[in-house]
């Protein structure tokens, strides 16, 4: 099982991703309006999807961490790994999107609601990871970063709406959307390949985070009933 995750998952992911990209770069037809530049879609869109999946995982882990009465290092490590992997994929998604924007829109950046929300999302999760670095106490770090993750995630739809209103007073550039069935297949294959790689990254990063947590809290965990006494102390204070 361990070997399968360590070697099988990334190799399968790379294989499927390579197949998807080959289909996208060589087999799929060029777009009617965007030409060959449209082939950026097969790297850009899967990156964005996987970034969304990772951020959603981070949000779910943060909420369940706060709902759980006692500290769960597994949920905390899940949140940490998802935020880091999501930040990587989201940054790549934004960079590829900006490169795509240059030949199609004529500019690298436009204050489009989706672009703006994503930029704010990346800044939010950078802040999240920086906060995790700056708090030594693992308990406090887990709780505080969960709060920050929830507040940041709630913010994204609000940002989206407000930027849409803000932009609606200016001119909004629209991108033409034409999806050929021959474009759907490479897109799906690349997305599955990237999904496998994302899962591999998440699992590896999760193990890393969990090992760090266990090293940090090694002493209290080694003592029997240590967690029980912490709970009763908390009860007394409350």
């Amino acid at each position: 099982m361990n070997k399968l995750i360590k070697w099988g998952l990334p190799l399968a992911g790379l294989g499927v991703l390579a197949a998807g990209w080959w289909l996208g770069l060589a087999w799929a037809p060029p777009d009617r309006e965007m030409g060959d530049v449209q082939r950026i879609m097969y790297v850009h869109v899967p990156l964005q999807w996987m970034a969304m999946v990772a951020m959603l995982l981070n949000f779910v882990a943060a909420v369940s961490y706060l709902l759980r009465g006692n500290a769960s290092w597994k949920l905390d490590s899940t949140a940490e790994s998802a935020a880091e992997v999501g930040l990587l994929l989201g940054t790549l998604g934004m960079v590829t999107g900006a490169i795509w924007g240059r030949p199609t829109w004529g500019v690298y950046w436009s204050w489009d609601p989706r672009l703006t929300s994503e930029a704010i999302m990346l800044v939010t999760y950078t802040g999240y990871l920086v906060l995790r670095r700056f708090v030594e106490d693992p308990d406090k770090r887990a709780t505080w970063s969960a709060v920050v993750a929830i507040l940041g995630a709630i913010n994204l739809p609000i940002v989206w709406f407000s930027v849409r209103w803000w932009r609606s007073l200016h001119q909004v550039q629209s991108s033409p959307k034409t999806v050929d069935p021959q474009m759907v297949l490479p897109l799906r294959v690349s997305a599955i390949g990237l999904l496998l790689i994302t899962i591999f990254f998440l699992i590896t990063r999760y193990r890393l985070a969990l090992a760090e947590r266990q090293a940090e809290v090694a002493l209290p965990d080694a003592l029997p009933e240590a967690s029980g006494s912490v709970v009763s102390n908390a009860h007394k204070v409350a």
Binding site: D31, M34, G35, D36, V37, I40, V43, V95, T104
Partner: peptide, 16 residues
């Protein structure tokens, strides 16, 4: 239709 532009495509894939 936009002609060419493979430079943009390769840089996207390369960066990723």
């Amino acid at each position: 239709r936009i002609q060419g532009g493979w430079g943009y495509v390769w840089s996207c894939y390369g960066i990723t």
